Structures are given as C-alpha cells and as structure tokens.
Amino acid sequence: MVGGILLAHFSRPSVFFALVPVPVLALTAAWLFVPESSNPDQAHIDIPGLVLSTAAIALLVCTIIEGPESGWGSPARVAGFLAAGRSASPPARSAEQPWRCASAHAPRS
C-alpha cells in the first residue's frame, strides 16, 4: 500500500529508497538480537525435499506462464497443475500414526 502511494506521488525509485531499508534493518536486528536456537544434532538440509519443492515450483510457474497460450483446460496445463500439486503435497501418512509423516519414523543416521 505504501508502494502504491509512493508511485502515485513520486517516481519508481522512491519505492526502493523508502522500502528497502525496512527489511535491511529488520534482518540486521534479527541477526544481532535473536539468539541461536538450532539443535546441532538435527539434520541440516533435506536435499530430496529441496529438489522436489524446486521442481514443483518450476513446474507450476511454467504451467502458469504457458496457460494463456495453449488454454487453461488443455491436457498439458491440467497435467502440469496436477503434477505440481502432487509433488508439493506432504508425504504419505503412516497407518499407525496418521498425524505424523511416514518419514518421521525413519531412524536417523
């Protein structure tokens, strides 16, 4: 909303001069004042999850970009939306404890 007001009364660079310092100050304050809370025994990066979520976002973006050209109801667009939605959905649930992800039961290495 602030960006729209600035654009209405000033030029485009005014938005950057006014709004860029806010996240910079917030990130600096968080880095300085928020204590470290990570558990060193925990796994660091979920590489398969990172790759899968990146692929899902890329597929969704490509599907949305190509939608107007080939039609939103075309088989390729419908398949793209379904595949992106399925790859971004949570993993299969455990039958014993349906509220937990099946991957939570795997032993940690």
Rank of each mutant, 00 (worst) to 15 (best):
L52R: 08
G67F: 00
T63R: 02
A29G: 14
T28A: 15
G71Y: 05
Q42C: 04
E69Q: 09
E36G: 12
S70H: 05
V34R: 12
L52I: 11
W31C: 14
T28W: 14
W31R: 12
P48D: 03
C62S: 08
D41Y: 10
E36R: 12
T54D: 05
T54G: 07
I65W: 15
L60S: 04
V34K: 04
W72Y: 05
A76K: 05
G73P: 01
C62Q: 10
P48R: 03
T63K: 00
A76E: 14
G71R: 00
S70I: 08
I64P: 03
P75L: 11
I65L: 11
A56R: 06
P48H: 07
S70L: 11
W72C: 03
I65G: 04
N39I: 08
V34N: 08
L52W: 02
S37R: 15
P75K: 01
L32H: 12
A43V: 13
T54Y: 01
I57T: 11
I64H: 03
A55I: 12
W31L: 13
G73F: 06
L52N: 00
E69A: 10
F33T: 06
I47P: 00
L32Q: 12
V51M: 12
W72L: 04
W72H: 10
A29I: 13
P35R: 12
E69K: 06
I57R: 01
V61P: 03
A76Q: 09
L60M: 15
C62I: 09
A30K: 13
H44V: 13
A58N: 09
E66F: 09
